[in-house]
């Protein structure tokens, strides 16, 4: 599983880097693209299988967000889809706020 995680996450980042170096897209564009791709792979039923096969390496990439959103939309209804991504989003919101209180912006 660790080797599969290495190969999977590495491969995804490699594709992202190739897109970044060969197009004018910014990191923001590419991240958004990968979230949508994750939702599409969820729709195809592929992403859950990838997570079963690869493990943590598939959960850490941003595509996992799109997949979780899609799965929760199917399970609980489109309007309740944010219930499922709460770990990542809530933790990010809370920690980023804590950081804002602790630090000042640096160059």
């Amino acid at each position: 599983m660790i080797i599969k995680s290495f190969l999977f996450t590495g491969f995804i980042c490699l594709i992202a880097q190739i897109i970044k170096d060969n197009t004018k897209l910014t990191s923001g564009h590419i991240t958004s693209l990968f979230v949508s791709l994750g939702a599409f792979l969820g729709f195809c039923g592929a992403y859950d299988k990838i997570i079963d096969c690869v493990g943590g390496g598939a959960s850490v990439v941003i595509m996992s967000f799109g997949n979780t959103l899609y799965n929760t939309a199917i399970e609980k209804g489109i309007l309740h889809m944010l219930g499922g991504v709460s770990t990542g989003i809530v933790a990010t919101i809370l920690l980023a706020f804590a950081i804002t209180l602790l630090f000042r912006v640096r160059d």
């Binding site: 995680s5 590495g10 491969f11 980042c13 490699l14 170096d21 943590g56 990439v61």
Partner: peptide, 19 residues
Amino acid sequence: NAIRAFVSGGIIGSISELL
């Protein structure tokens, strides 16, 4: 750049799997 992205992404992925 591509090699760096692959290796660093891979290391982050493997540590994630461990965690």
